[in-house]
């Protein structure tokens, strides 16, 4: 392992969020007063990924990096919210490759580097709504899944995209032991038009840094209008198929988790309400619940995908 790659302390842990948000202004200001020599120093504390801004980003206040990276659902590392941050460092994310197969003209096994070469990263600041009734605002760095799928040329027969997470019990503590909360590999799926939608991205970073392991390194899916569990992490396989693939949560409990899992305040989880959510980091103990929006507030962009569908039956 390269010493230079050690990140016991991430730059983003040192950089205050305000400074991160205004880093371009800071650099510009430093340049303007002719202290260019200092810019190198300032640059060392700025983000390491180069990602273009996107009009698809929200302007809502972002959830603190420490909350985004310490409060996670990633059952391969344990079912407690703090487990992934404690246990995920054992996963080796390099080298990494992804098999893309099924109904495509050009099936391929791509290394992460191959995958990233032709794309340019964008920063997408998205709301993330967990099925458990809490939400965050996360600045992801990634690229549209559509860009990747076009490379392998889906056949006309392909109707759905199926995803799988890596299975490595030796490196993933939640995949060992007596209590196995889910059937592995973790599986997720999208309809092809959902997968090709410009909002749907493969994220490889957040807050301008490569993804931390607990957030799904080295690459994960982000579909901001669906509940968070659709955002499958540490992907090793993407298959284009003609039948609706079964997901892990459906296998675990079909009556509670549907294929679509679009955020919908009008369709409750069978055991709890989805009408409201608590925004993480907002107000501590006195945090007020806020109303959950249909499609997590992305209805204008995605509601047409579901025109004419009964959303109560297709939950």
């Amino acid at each position: 392992m390269l010493i230079g790659k050690s990140r016991d302390v991430r730059p983003s842990e040192i950089t205050p969020r305000d400074a991160y948000l205004h880093r371009r202004g800071l650099l510009a200001g430093i340049g303007a007063v002719g202290l260019g020599a200092l810019a190198g120093g300032a640059d060392a504390t700025a983000a390491t990924l180069i990602a273009a801004k996107s009009a698809l980003s929200t302007t809502e206040p972002m959830t603190l990096l420490k909350d985004v990276t310490s409060y996670n659902n990633y059952y391969e590392f344990g079912t407690d919210k703090g487990d992934p941050a404690s246990n995920a460092s054992t996963l080796k994310t390099a080298p990494w490759s992804v098999v893309i197969d099924g109904m495509v003209a050009k099936p391929a096994t791509l290394t992460l580097e191959d995958m990233l070469k032709p794309v340019s990263l964008e920063e997408r600041i998205y709301r993330m709504r967990c099925v458990e009734g809490w939400s965050m605002v996360i600045p992801w760095d990634g690229f549209p899944l559509a860009d990747l799928l076009k490379r392998v040329e889906p056949l006309g027969s392909a109707k759905f995209v199926a995803f799988e997470t890596v299975v490595r019990p030796a490196e993933m503590s939640g995949q060992r032991g007596v209590f196995q909360p889910l059937p592995w590999p973790y599986r997720e799926g999208l309809r092809l038009d959902e997968a090709m939608h410009p909002l749907t991205i493969i994220a490889t970073g957040l807050y301008g840094e490569p993804l931390p392991n607990q957030n799904g390194a080295p690459l994960r899916l982000v579909v901001p209008w669906k509940y968070g569990f659709k955002g499958i992490k540490s992907i090793v396989r993407i298959s284009l198929v003609d039948k609706m693939p079964e997901t892990s949560w459906q296998q675990q409990n079909k009556s509670e988790y549907g294929f679509y899992s679009n955020v919908n305040p009008a369709v409750d989880h069978p055991r709890w309400s989805q009408a409201t959510e608590r925004r993480i980091g907002e107000g501590g103990l006195s945090a007020k619940r806020r109303p959950t929006l249909p499609y997590n507030g992305y209805g204008e962009q995605v509601a047409s995908l579901y025109a004419g569908m009964d959303l109560k039956a297709n939950f």
Partner: peptide
């Protein structure tokens, strides 16, 4: 810990 903001990301749930 709750009133000194030491209950993590979702203090209400933790409490």
């Amino acid at each position: 810990r709750g009133f000194t903001d030491q209950l993590g990301a979702d203090p209400v749930r933790s409490l």
